[in-house]
């Protein structure tokens, strides 16, 4: 199998975009536009130098954490800012663990690069994709190749033109709406429904935990609830 993969890779020396990945990514790119734009506006308002703030879209590439980073920078201790951003990002550990079985069949270079573009949307797309390793790799890389530059462009637009968009449009709600759609798509049985509902409820109750750790705790309670429901039914 490795030899056939190599010869195919050689024939397709130039990377071709995966058609399914383009089709699946486009609707998810739309909500990234208002989110990235909002982030750009916050970067231009940040106490950080604008260039450094914008660099987070290249080197961090995690919207919610970037938003916390640029808005808190200079207003809280470095330790607080770092902890907040990393706690928000801790959900990625779960994404990483969830993708690990699929990644086990991938070459090391891909396993090293793939995490760099593991944003919420790419996780949602990647985890729902099955198929042979070469196909998965091209699918995943296409998603990354679409989301990564798009994020920088919309962030830059937010930095440059943010002041011109009326805040009254309320585009800040767009990411929540899209993620709601993704959650609905992931609810395929009673146990996944329980996981999502309990996670949402627990997060509401834990909203006051420091550094937004309610997000993580709520999610873990939701996972436990889904697992318990499944276990009770089968066991």
């Amino acid at each position: 199998m490795p030899s056939s993969t190599t010869s195919r890779d050689r024939r397709q020396a130039r990377f071709k975009l995966h058609q399914d990945a383009v089709r699946d990514s486009l609707p998810l790119l739309i909500p990234a536009v208002p989110f990235g734009f909002v982030l750009g506006v916050e970067i231009s308002d940040s106490l950080m130098p604008v260039g450094v703030g914008f660099s987070t879209s290249v080197v961090v590439f995690a919207g919610a954490a970037q938003l916390a980073l640029v808005t808190l920078a200079g207003t809280a201790s470095v330790v607080t800012v770092v902890l907040t951003a990393l706690v928000i990002n801790a959900r990625h550990v779960m994404y990483s663990a969830a993708l690990a079985p699929v990644m086990a069949r991938q070459p090391l270079w891909f396993r090293a690069i793939a995490p760099f573009v593991l944003v919420d949307q790419v996780f949602a797309l990647g985890i729902s994709r099955s198929g042979d390793p070469a196909d998965f790799r091209r699918y995943y890389l296409t998603c990354g190749a679409l989301f990564f530059p798009t994020w920088q462009v919309v962030t830059a637009l937010g930095v440059l033109f943010g002041a011109a968009v009326p805040e009254s449009l309320g585009l800040g709600v767009a990411p929540a709406l899209m993620f709601t759609g993704i959650v609905v798509a992931m609810v395929i049985d009673r146990a996944t429904l329980v996981a999502a509902a309990v996670a949402a409820l627990a997060t509401i109750l834990l909203l006051d935990l420091p550094n937004r750790s309610g997000l993580l705790c709520g999610a873990m309670i939701g996972v436990a609830a889904g697992y318990a429901v499944e276990g009770r039914r089968t066991g």
Partner: peptide, 21 residues
């Protein structure tokens, strides 16, 4: 258990987006 990570984390994320502490 990992089956429930996606729905749980994204549902929790929606909550923190709309009810930002």
């Amino acid at each position: 258990a990992l089956r429930y990570v996606g729905p749980a984390v994204l549902a929790a994320l929606v909550v923190t987006f709309v009810a930002d502490p």
